[in-house]
Simulated assay, not measured.
Amino acid sequence: MKLVSKLSWLTAGFCWICQVNAAEVAAKVAVNEVWLDLPQSELVYLQLEHGTVVFKLADQFAPRHTERFRQLVRAGFYQGLTFYRVIDQFVLQAGLPEDEKHPTLTNQNWPGVKAEFSWPVKAADRYTLVQKPEMFAAETGFNQGFAVGRDSGQEWLLSCPLTVNLARDTNADSGTTDFALMRGQAPRHLDQNMSVFAKVVWGAELLNGVNYGPAQTGGIIADVKARSKIVSATLGSDLPESARLALQWQDTSSPAFIDALAQRRARGNEFFKHKGNGALDICYSQVPVRLKP
């Protein structure tokens, strides 16, 4: 990340200033770091006109939706389609508007997917508590790299920035093909109302280059030529090895990640004059991702 100002760390989701002069802390943390390889079969490479964005599929939480997304990707459904509804600091929605024809495919028979809003908590899952109580849930935490809420024995994926859900109408089971990517302020009012099935793990900065729609049309971009295009979407396991990114993310149950959460909660760096009340917004704590050394 290039620091363009003293406050540019604000765009990163956690405190970069706290890390600037902390070589000795970094060395200590590195001992406790655990990095997990992201399987290529769980990655989708979304090739935009200006670069590549990578999704990590949440198979363990939304298997019906990840199965559908794989089917669409392998059918070439998204190739040549566009982001047709884009609202600044909220959502980037892509796919095929109802009144438009697919540029290459004739099969439009994609039935709705049964909603996967929540599921019973699994005691065996590697879960890291972040906040209890929390504004929109009894508690929040990380489960295998994904931000989740929990209440009354149920669990769900949170609508944090960079999560991906299947667009739908008022029918909970009406999502078919189009996806919505969350941006900006966390739209937590969507928790347990949308089926989240993936999150962006690479190339998030490229989303800033997607063309926005006018506010007066609710973000809808009527002119197809004015929309940003998806060149292709491909499963990592279907790409030649030379085209794959060897991505890893930090184990959210590891000592290093848990310590980082504690540091953010305490605002222990001398930069912070107001230390807050000890609460921590889980959507502010993105999981670190890197290329495998």
Rank of each mutant, 00 (worst) to 15 (best):
Q108T: 14
L162N: 08
E98R: 08
L96M: 02
T140C: 13
M135Q: 11
A124V: 14
T82W: 00
D125V: 09
Q60H: 06
A115N: 07
A167G: 11
P63L: 07
G80P: 01
P103L: 04
L105K: 05
G145N: 08
R168E: 04
D169C: 06
D191C: 04
V86F: 02
R68F: 05
P133G: 12
Y127V: 15
K101N: 15
Q154H: 13
V91S: 02
W110S: 07
F136Y: 15
W110F: 12
N165T: 12
G175L: 04
E134P: 11
E100G: 02
N107Q: 09
T82M: 04
Q71L: 10
A115S: 08
A172D: 12
K101M: 10
K122L: 15
I87M: 15
I87F: 10
E139M: 13
V130F: 13
L129P: 11
R188H: 07
D178G: 03
Q131F: 07
M135E: 13
M135D: 08
L181C: 04
G149Q: 10
G175H: 02
K56S: 06
V53S: 07
L72H: 00
E98A: 14
Y127S: 10
V73Y: 00
V164T: 00
G184Y: 07
R183C: 04
A94Y: 00
T104L: 05
V130W: 12
Q192R: 08
E155A: 09
V86C: 09
G76E: 01
L96G: 00
P97K: 03
I87D: 01
V91T: 09
W156Q: 13
